[in-house]
Design a protein around this nucleic acid. Structure first.
Length: 847
RNA sequence: GUCGGAGUGGCGGAAUUGGCAGACGCGCCAGACUAAGGAUCUGGUGCCCGCAAGGGCGUGGGGGUUCAAGUCCCCCCUCCGACACCA
C-alpha cells in the first residue's frame, strides 16, 4: 500500500491530528488524509457497481433521492449513513447490493432562484447536483453512479411523458373542471395531499379555492387495493396508519330522496338527490337533511321566500377560507341555512326539511347527508340551533347523560328495525333499501383523485396538444420528449411561464396537421419520484422506461429509507404508480408494491427547532468532515439515538466517537502501542476470555445491525474496545494470535459504519487487502457459551449475593451454594420457607 | 375529542422471553503524565443515611397479579405524533 496518503509525511495535517505530533507520523490516525484516498479507490475500482447478471442474491437498498439543494445537510448525512451502512453490510454478507443514487431535480427552488436572478434553472440545478454529489461522496456513501437518474434529464422526461400517455390511453389520466386548491405563494394548483390544515405544505401560504380545468390521475380506482395491500408491508405503523386514514374507507348505504313540498307532494320537475350514510339503521330518526352549499340542486329546489337568504349563505360559504370552513369553533347557527324545501324520507314516507350547511363537503360522498340528531352529535348541535325536533332511535344505556348517542343499543321508534341491535339493523336497513329499489350498499373513500397539473416552468411538460378540430391530442411517442424551451419569462403571473414562449406554445396537430396549442402546464414533481426506483433497475433501457426482466430481478426495493413527511405523498403516489404500471403491462404483473421494507428516520433539530436553511440554524457537515472526518461523523449519528427518533444536534457526541476511533486506531495500527508487548505460546484464561468476548461481539453486532439498533451496536463496540484494551494491558493478556483475531474481527464489524479508517487499517495489516471484500464474520456458537456464570442469590426477591457457579450447575448445587453464603444467611432467619431456583442464573429464597 | 407511541440518573439512552435496573456515551469529580491542559490515560459517579462495612429507597403517580414487575393487568397524569366536521 505504497500509495496510501496516510503514509506520506509531506501531506498537510488536519487540525485533529495536530495533537498527536509526538507520535510516529505514519502511525497516527489522520482521517482527513485517508478518507479522500478511499473514496477515490471505491469509485475507480467500481467496488459498488452491480451488474444485472451478478450471481449473488440481489438486494436493493434505496434512500429517497434528494432534491439537489447544494451541499448536504445533517439530515442527508443521517439518511445516507444508514443507507451506506446497509449497502456495505449486505455486501459483506454476500449479496449483490443495488445501491443507486439520483436527483429529484425538478421543483420550485430552482425556479424561484431563476425568478430572482434571471439565471435559467438548468445550470442552477446542474451546479447544485454536483455540489450534493460531492458532499455525499465525502460522507463516504458508495453508489452505482452509472445508474444515476435526474428528473430533469431529457431521457428521464421522455419516459415520464411516455408513462403519462400510457395512463391517458388507459383512462387513468383525465382532465376535468373542479374546485381546486390554489397556492398564491407557489402560484400553482396543489393536490389534496399537499394541503395541510388549509395551507400549502411547501410554502405555508393559505390556499384559495379556484374553479379550474386540470389534469388528474385516477388514483381512486386503486383506493381499495392501496388499503388492502398495506397489510403485507413491513412499514412503520405510523405510516401505515396515516395512509389508512388518508384513504378513509367507510361502509354504508346510499339512497335517493325525492324533493317534495311540506305536505309530501312531489316536486313538479321530479327533483331528487342521493345521500350517503354509514348509519342507515338510524334512518327513522332523520328529522332533516343537509346539502353542501355547492350542491348543484341548491338553486333549483330553494323556495322563493328563501331564495335571498340561501343566495347570501352560498355566497358567504364561497368567501369563507378553507381554514375557517374547517374550523369547529364557529357557532353552528351561522353555519347553516334553511332552503324552504322538503325531501321524503323513504323509510317513513314523511317529508323532512332541507338545509344547507358549510360543513357538508361537496367533494365527499354525494355532497348531501341525512341528519339524525338523536345519534349524531353534529346533527344534534345543528338541530338544537335551528329548532329541529330530535328523535331517539337507539335505546340509551341506564344512566346515560350525554346528548347524541353513537354506540350500540336496541333500536326503537324505527319501524321494522325495532328491537334489533345496531349491526343487525344496519344490514336490515340496507336489505330493505335494495328490495325497495331505493338505494344500495355503498363504500366511500376519502381519497381524491391526484391533481397533477402545475402552472410552473421547472417540471416535466404534460405531453399533449389542443387542436380546435381534434380536441386533446397526445404527442406521438416518437416525438418525445417534449422539453421546455429556454426563452421563457419566469416572473409569476398565475399562468404557466411556458405560455410566454410562442415557439413552444404554437405547434401543429399530430392528427390533422392544423394549428394547435401545446399544454403549458407541467407535472407535479411527485410524478417524477413515482417511478424513479424502477428506472434505477434499468437506466439504460431506450425502448421502454425499463425492461421487465430487470424489474423482476431487483424489485421490490428490499429496504427503502427516507423521511416520514412523505407518508401520504410520495409513498402513496409511488404505490399507485407501481400498481398501475403493473396492470398496464409495463411492469411485471406480480409487482404490487414498490417498497417491501420502509424505514423512516427522525429529524435533526437544533435548540429544539427543526434545522433548516430558512431558519439559518444549520450545522454544516462539511466542517466536521474537514476536521474530525466522515467516519467520526457517521459513528456519532449511529450512536446518538435509535435511528427512527428525532435528534437534537446538541446530543450528538462527536468527541466521544472521535476518541473511540483514535483508540481503535492505536490498538490496530501496525507498529502501534501494543505491538511490542505481544507474545506467542500458550493461551491464558485471559486470552480465552478475550476470544469469547470477540465471538460475543460478532453475535451482538450482527443482531443489532439486523434490528437497526445501531446505537446499541456502537455501545457494544465501545464496551468491547474497553475490554480489549484492558486485556492488552493485563499481565496475562496479549497473546499474539488471539489479539490479531480480535482486532481483525473488530475492524470487519466496524467496516460498514466507519469504512475509511477500517479500509486503511486492514490494508496496512493485510498487505493491501480490502476489509469490505472479506466475508462478514460468524460467531462460533460454542464460544458463546460461558463455562461459569454469576448466579444471583435473592432473599425475598432482593439481591443479597452473587456467586460464580459452573454454567451446567444443577439446582441442588446452586441452592447449596446459595445457602452457604454468609451474606445470604445474614438475611435468612433459619430455613427458607420456599426456594425458587432457576439454575444457573438465579436462586430466590423466601423466609 | 378519537386512535397510536412514549415517560428509566444531571443528559442521550440500554435491559430480545417477567429473573443482577442504569450497558455504552456525554457531563461531572478525583488522580496520573505535564512548563501547561480545553490533549491523552486511570479510577469514581442513581438518590438518601454512614468514616467504613453495610443498610434503605428507586424505572411518571396510584392500585393489583407474582417467589420475583421497567417488563403483565386496572385507574390516573404528562409529553409527542397522526386524524379531527368525511356523513
Amino acid at each position: 500500500m505504497s500509495d496510501s496518503p496516510a503514509g506520506d509525511p509531506e501531506t498537510t495535517r488536519g487540525d485533529a491530528a495536530a495533537d498527536i505530533s509526538d507520535e510516529d507520523a505514519a502511525s497516527a490516525y489522520r482521517p482527513t488524509e485517508i478518507e479522500p484516498y478511499w473514496q477515490d479507490y471505491w469509485r475507480e475500482h467500481r467496488t459498488y457497481e452491480v451488474d444485472d447478471d451478478d450471481p449473488r442474491p440481489p438486494y436493493y437498498v434505496l434512500c429517497m433521492y434528494p432534491y439537489p439543494s447544494g451541499n448536504a445537510h445533517m439530515g442527508h448525512v443521517r439518511n445516507y449513513t444508514f443507507g451506506d451502512l446497509l449497502t456495505r453490510y449486505r455486501t459483506m454478507q454476500g449479496d449483490a447490493v443495488l445501491s443507486p443514487m439520483g436527483f429529484d431535480s425538478f421543483g420550485l427552488p430552482a425556479e424561484n432562484a431563476a425568478i430572482k436572478t434571471g439565471v435559467h434553472p438548468r445550470p442552477y440545478t446542474d451546479e447544485r447536483i454536483e455540489m450534493l454529489r460531492g458532499s455525499i461522496t465525502r460522507i463516504g456513501g458508495v453508489y452505482d453512479w452509472r445508474r444515476e437518474v435526474r428528473s430533469h434529464d431529457p431521457e428521464y422526461i421522455r419516459w415520464t411523458q411516455w408513462i403519462f400517455l400510457k395512463f391517458l390511453e388507459a383512462g387513468l389520466a383525465y382532465r376535468k373542471a373542479a374546485p381546486v386548491n390554489w397556492c398564491p405563494g407557489c402560484q400553482t394548483v396543489l393536490a389534496n395531499e399537499q394541503v395541510v390544515d388549509g395551507a400549502c405544505e411547501r410554502s405555508g401560504d393559505l390556499v384559495e379555492r379556484r374553479d379550474l380545468e386540470q389534469w388528474y390521475f385516477r388514483i381512486t380506482d386503486y383506493a381499495q387495493q392501496l388499503l388492502d395491500d398495506l397489510e403485507g408491508l413491513d412499514w412503520p405503523d405510523r405510516v401505515v396508519t396515516q395512509q389508512r386514514n388518508w384513504i378513509g374507507r367507510s361502509e354504508g348505504a346510499q339512497f335517493t330522496m325525492a324533493v317534495v313540498d311540506a305536505e309530501g307532494a312531489g316536486h313538479p320537475d321530479g327533483l331528487e338527490f342521493d345521500v350517503f350514510t354509514t348509519r342507515p339503521d338510524t334512518s327513522f330518526g332523520m328529522t332533516f337533511c343537509v346539502l353542501a352549499p355547492e350542491h348543484p340542486l341548491v338553486p333549483l329546489l330553494t323556495a322563493d321566500d328563501r331564495r335571498e337568504a340561501v343566495e347570501a349563505f352560498v355566497e358567504q360559504a364561497r368567501n369563507t377560507s378553507e381554514i375557517d370552513r374547517l374550523s369547529t369553533d364557529r357557532p353552528v347557527g351561522t353555519r347553516g341555512c334553511a332552503t324552504g324545501a322538503f325531501a321524503r324520507n323513504p323509510f317513513t314516507g314523511q317529508p323532512v326539511p332541507v338545509y344547507l350547511a358549510d360543513y357538508v363537503l361537496a367533494t365527499y360522498g354525494t355532497g348531501a347527508v341525512m341528519a339524525v340528531p338523536g345519534e349524531d352529535q353534529r346533527d344534534w348541535d345543528f338541530a338544537t340551533a335551528f329548532g329541529i325536533p330530535i328523535v331517539e332511535t337507539v335505546t340509551r344505556p341506564e344512566g346515560w347523560e350525554g346528548e347524541a348517542y353513537a354506540a350500540d343499543g336496541v333500536h326503537k321508534n324505527s319501524g321494522f328495525l325495532d328491537g334489533m341491535d345496531v349491526p343487525t339493523a344496519k344490514a336490515a336497513a340496507i336489505d330493505w333499501l335494495v328490495e325497495e329499489g331505493a338505494g344500495e350498499r355503498k363504500v366511500n373513500f376519502r381519497l381524491r383523485d391526484w391533481l397533477l397539473s402545475r402552472q410552473r416552468f421547472w417540471g416535466c411538460p404534460i405531453p399533449v396538444v389542443y387542436c380546435d378540430t381534434d380536441g386533446i391530442v397526445p404527442v406521438p411517442l416518437d416525438q418525445l420528449p417534449v422539453v421546455a424551451p429556454d426563452d421563457v419569462e419566469f416572473t409569476p403571473t398565475g399562468q404557466s411561464p411556458l405560455l410566454s414562449s410562442p415557439e413552444f406554445l404554437h405547434t401543429t396537430c399530430p392528427t390533422c396537421s392544423g394549428p394547435a396549442r401545446r399544454e403549458t402546464d407541467t407535472m407535479d414533481t411527485f410524478v417524477d419520484s413515482s417511478w424513479y426506483f424502477l428506472r434505477f433497475c434499468d437506466p439504460w433501457s431506450d425502448e421502454a422506461p425499463f425492461r421487465q426482466d430487470r424489474i423482476e430481478r431487483w424489485m421490490p426495493v428490499d429496504q427503502y429509507i427516507g423521511g416520514a413527511e412523505h407518508a401520504v405523498l410520495h409513498l402513496m403516489y409511488a404505490r399507485f404508480f407501481t400498481k398501475a404500471l403493473a396492470d398496464l403491462g409495463v411492469a411485471p404483473k406480480e409487482l404490487r408494491e414498490p417498497f417491501q421494507r420502509l424505514f423512516t428516520q427522525g429529524m435533526i433539530r437544533l435548540a429544539g427547532t427543526k434545522m433548516s436553511k430558512s431558519k439559518g440554524n444549520l450545522v454544516a457537515p462539511e466542517e466536521i468532515i474537514d476536521t474530525l472526518g466522515a467516519d467520526t461523523l457517521r459513528l456519532a449519528h449511529l450512536a446518538v439515538k435509535p435511528p427512527e427518533e428525532d435528534v437534537d444536534w446538541e446530543d450528538v457526541g462527536l468527541e466521544g466517537c472521535a476518541r473511540f476511533l483514535q483508540r481503535v486506531w492505536r490498538i490496530s495500527v501496525p507498529g502501534g502501542e501494543f505491538d511490542a508487548a505481544l507474545r506467542d505460546g500458550a493461551e491464558t484464561a485471559e486470552d480465552t476470555a478475550l476470544l469469547r468476548a470477540t465471538h460475543r461481539l460478532v453475535a451482538d453486532v450482527t443482531e443489532a445491525f439486523d434490528r437497526w439498533s445501531y446505537h446499541v451496536a456502537v455501545a457494544k463496540f465501545m464496551a468491547y474496545v474497553n475490554e480489549l484494551q484492558r486485556s492488552l494491558r493485563s499481565e496475562a493478556g496479549g497473546h499474539r494470535a488471539t489479539v490479531e483475531f480480535a482486532t481483525d474481527t473488530l475492524l470487519q464489524l466496524l467496516a460498514p459504519a466507519c469504512p475509511h479508517m477500517t479500509a486503511e487499517l486492514w490494508s496496512r495489516r493485510h498487505d493491501g487487502g480490502h476489509v469490505h471484500e472479506v466475508p462478514w464474520p460468524a460467531a462460533d456458537p460454542a464460544m458463546l457459551v460461558e463455562d461459569s456464570v454469576t448466579m444471583v442469590v435473592q432473599v425475598a426477591g432482593k439481591v443479597r449475593d452473587r456467586i460464580e457457579v459452573a454454567a451446567d450447575a444443577d439446582e441442588a448445587t446452586c441452592v447449596a451454594a446459595a445457602l452457604a453464603s454468609e451474606k445470604v444467611q445474614a438475611h435468612l432467619d433459619g430455613e427458607p420457607r420456599k426456594v425458587i431456583a432457576r439454575p444457573p442464573k438465579l436462586v430466590n429464597l423466601v423466609p
